[in-house]
């Protein structure tokens, strides 16, 4: 698990659960004893961004890089120059959480020279319960729009099909089918199947992709 390229770019439709995946992935890396950094590149969403979890992430020894402007709740498209340090310092395992559409993915474009230089993984997180990525055509067109504006290529799919607190096993399996179909058309592997811990033992064996059990960190104020 987590044996991906040093630079991992997390993309997807907003609401696909990118940030939840990115935060859980970063915790996983840190628990495995890796020197980990998470870069919040989300300049399109004002709420529910990984930077909100900075205290918890920092506590686990994870370096959090987001805006150069103090405070978690600005909506300024200001990226920190600190981002270069983890792109350049190869002792870091890096998770880049990218804003959830082609506009958000554009922020990634300015770092393309680093991705030309060093092999990377770019995950496209799919939630089959989101209206723009609930069909093979929809998901592919969304994936392509993110590739175009970010100037990078998706290397693998992540099935993160959920309905917030109302997720069922059927949701995850529906998403798995969609990812398999997208995978067949694009020739991209399914790298992870994300599931809340309660589903892990219920999932059938031999799924394409490793099962990544997650905790829910990105909560609404009444869910704490």
């Amino acid at each position: 698990m987590f044996n991906d390229k040093r630079l991992r770019i997390i993309t997807g439709h907003y609401g696909s659960g990118k940030t939840e995946f990115a935060v859980n992935y970063a915790f996983g890396l840190a628990e495995a004893g890796k020197k980990t950094a998470i870069v919040d590149l989300d300049i399109v969403n004002p709420y529910f961004r990984s930077r909100e979890k900075e205290p918890l992430l920092t506590e686990k020894g994870i370096r959090v890089i987001s805006s150069s402007i103090k405070g978690i709740s600005g909506d300024l498209p200001a990226l920190s120059p600190e981002i270069y340090s983890v792109l350049q310092d190869t002792s870091y395992e890096v998770v880049l959480d990218v804003g959830g559409d082609k506009v958000g993915a554009r922020a990634l474009g300015r770092y393309h020279e680093y991705f030309d230089r060093e092999p990377y993984d770019m995950f496209f997180v799919v939630n089959a319960n989101r209206h723009q990525t609930n069909t093979v055509d929809g998901a592919i067109s969304y994936l392509r729009s993110i590739e175009d504006s970010s100037m990078q290529k998706v290397t693998a799919l992540v099935n993160n099909t959920h309905l917030c607190g109302n997720t069922t096993l059927e949701d995850i399996m529906k998403g798995q089918k969609l990812c398999e179909d997208v995978s067949t058309v694009l020739g991209l592997p399914i790298k992870y199947v994300v599931a809340e811990k309660r589903f892990v033992d219920l999932l059938p064996k031999g799924l394409h992709g490793e099962v990544l059990p997650i905790n829910i960190y990105m909560k609404k104020p009444w869910e704490d």
């Binding site: 609401g15 969403n45 004002p46 709420y47 529910f48 319960n129 309905l163 917030c164 109302n166 609404k220 104020p221």
Partner: peptide, 10 residues
């Protein structure tokens, strides 16, 4: 409110 606008729900 902003939360209503930004949150995801079924």
């Amino acid at each position: 409110d902003g939360m209503m606008g930004q949150m995801m729900e079924p």
